[in-house]
């Protein structure tokens, strides 16, 4: 009997939870806020689904109900991607070490 591809995806999922568990515990508490903003940004990789929906139409039929939802989701996810990564960058740039000469 063949293994359902779903099982492989489930394996990826479960293993990733474990990776997430260990990686996140190693995040230093002082960077927990950037952690949240960057997870925000990366979870917006959901944009790939939105792009598939948006591109489903053709030149004659650009806007159908499905693709409109796709377009809206593209914008929402893009706000998160740009906003999330940039605000994380902005925060991380502020973390500085003590200057020796002080």
């Amino acid at each position: 009997m063949e293994i359902d591809p779903f099982i492989f995806r489930l394996s990826i999922f479960i293993l990733s939870i474990f990776i997430g568990y260990y990686v996140v515990w190693s995040v230093t508490p002082s960077l927990h806020t950037p952690l949240m903003s960057v997870t925000n940004a990366i979870s917006s990789v959901i944009i790939v689904g939105a792009i598939i929906a948006g591109l489903s139409g053709d030149s004659q039929n650009i806007f159908n109900t499905s693709s409109i939802f796709g377009f809206l989701a593209i914008s929402l996810a893009a706000i998160n991607i740009f906003g999330g990564f940039l605000v994380t960058q902005r925060m991380l740039r502020m973390y500085k070490k003590k200057k020796k000469d002080k």
Binding site: S16, V45, V48, G49
Partner: peptide, 18 residues
Amino acid sequence: FTLENSALIITGALVGSS
């Protein structure tokens, strides 16, 4: 899972556990 997309599955699991 719906899109059968491993990037999304991995990310979802990471963010979920985070």
